[in-house]
């Protein structure tokens, strides 16, 4: 028990990630409003991005541009660029998904005049 608590306290980033993730999934599953479902999805996606950023954070590191001409490069001085690149790409993907999803939501609203999932499904069937 103490071990688990200690592990949690030492990793606040990951606790936040888990909370965000579960929160988003809960909103997606529980809210009948389609736009709120999208917000839930957005929180889930943000939690994944938060996870990528959290593990790549490095104290006292600088941008990964090599300043010296010497052959030996001290890797500890530089931040790892790769997770950040992944993050940027993931955000782009997220934006594209959001665009398509909003288009679909507005198509649904124009057709059914409602954003409530239960009402919409009732009218579909």
């Amino acid at each position: 028990m103490v071990d688990v608590l200690q592990a949690l306290v030492q990793r606040p980033n990951f606790v936040v990630f888990v909370i965000l993730f579960l929160w988003g999934v809960y909103i997606m599953a529980a809210h009948p409003n389609l736009v709120k479902k999208l917000i839930g999805l957005y929180i889930v996606q943000t939690s994944a991005i938060f996870f990528l950023v959290a593990f790549s954070a490095k104290d006292g590191a600088t941008v990964p541009i090599i300043f010296t001409d010497s052959a030996t490069v001290d890797a500890a001085v530089y931040a790892n660029p790769l997770p950040h690149v992944l993050t940027v790409t993931a955000i782009v993907v997220q934006v594209a998904t959001l665009g398509v999803s909003l288009a679909l939501v507005s198509a649904i609203y124009r057709k059914f005049g409602s954003l409530d999932e239960d009402e919409v499904l009732e009218r579909v069937e």
């Binding site: 997606m28 389609l34 999805l41 889930v44 994944a48 990528l52 992944l86 679909l104 198509a107 579909v124």
Partner: peptide
């Protein structure tokens, strides 16, 4: 019409799947 409703559901689940995949890659 109804296709948009099912496409929206597909989108929610599909994006959740993609996010899970991204977490796994991380």
């Amino acid at each position: 019409g109804s296709a948009a409703v099912y496409a929206f559901r597909y989108l929610l689940l599909g994006s959740l799947g993609a996010t899970l995949y991204l977490l796994g890659v991380g």
